[in-house]
């Protein structure tokens, strides 16, 4: 009976601990989001979206970094997505059992979680240093390097779930392999591939480290990709670390915008993959 009671006791201790851990863990995360909403909404205004970044001590907004971020993310996706989808296609369609595929998969998984600041150094060495100046295009390339692994991973996974009977049926009709892939595999996996792209955009929209010394920053409005370009994360970093309350408020507003963008992207990615599994 003693033994039984001791076992029951040990069980309830651990179970209580796990509930406590969950409450603390989730509570902590709620605290972070709560502080973000509180400070972010307090600093949000129309001016944030319509005015340029101000000099210290005066009012202003975040228009130029928002535009800069959108441009750089757009170019990064335009460069990274085709490479990612094509590489995923090779891995799932042509070389499914080849040695190269397992090597690429392994390396890709490592790139997926490699420190992004190292990617910034890489682009600095191969683009910024030879050209002699920082530029928006260098920032885009750094982000593109981060897009590729995400898209490769999801494309491969999604193409692998396409039933092989579909491919066999199309092949039996005499379609060449590339047409089978374009008209059957891609069509069947479309929602999943788009999900991957959305996740990649979510991933890069908050990235700061790779932009610090590729796109640098720009206090003025610029749409010139060959010049230094402001981006939301870098401006948040600069403004938050500054001693000026005006700048710090804008940093909170920017942080709120990024969080909303990232959450919206990941929730729509989730909804998209849910509709796919239902139908």
């Amino acid at each position: 009976m003693m033994l039984y009671r001791r076992r029951r006791f040990a069980n309830s201790v651990v179970m209580t601990l796990s509930v406590v851990a969950t409450v603390i863990g989730l509570g902590w995360l709620v605290l972070v989001l709560g502080a973000l909403l509180w400070n972010g909404f307090g600093s949000l205004s129309v001016a944030v979206f319509t005015e340029m970044t101000p000099p210290p001590g005066s009012a202003g907004g975040l228009l130029n970094p928002i535009v800069g971020s959108l441009m750089m993310s757009g170019v990064a996706v335009a460069i990274g997505t085709p490479i990612g989808i094509l590489a995923g296609t090779y891995m799932a369609e042509y070389g499914r059992y080849s040695m190269l595929t397992s090597v690429v998969r392994f390396i890709n998984d490592i790139l997926l979680s490699a420190p992004s600041i190292v990617v910034g150094l890489f682009i600095y060495e191969v683009v910024v240093r030879p050209l002699g100046h920082f530029s928006g295009i260098a920032g885009s390339l750094a982000l593109a390097v981060l897009v590729v692994p995400v898209v490769v991973r999801t494309t491969e996974d999604m193409l692998l779930t396409v039933p092989k009977e579909l491919r066999e049926a199309a092949t039996a009709l005499g379609l060449p392999r590339s047409h089978v892939i374009a008209n059957v595999s891609y069509r069947a996996a479309r929602a999943g591939i788009v999900t991957g792209i959305l996740l990649a955009v979510a991933r890069i929209s908050g990235e700061t480290a790779p932009l610090l010394f590729t796109a640098l920053n720009n206090q003025f409005f610029s749409a010139d990709m060959t010049q230094p370009l402001a981006s939301l994360p870098v401006v948040i970093f600069q403004f938050a670390m500054s001693p000026y309350p005006d700048w710090q408020k804008l940093a909170w507003a920017g942080a709120l915008i990024i969080t909303f963008a990232v959450l919206a992207l990941s929730i729509s990615a989730r909804a998209l993959s849910a509709t796919r599994t239902n139908s």
Binding site: I83, L86, Y90, T101, I110, L121, F122, V126
Partner: peptide, 26 residues
């Protein structure tokens, strides 16, 4: 068909090239 296969192959290899490039550049 052949060129599509080659292009996808090149894209897969480019993942390795990125990693190699990072190491060499660093």
């Amino acid at each position: 068909d052949g060129s599509f296969r080659t292009i996808t192959f090149a894209a897969a290899v480019s993942v390795l090239v990125i990693l190699g490039g990072v190491i060499v550049a660093l």
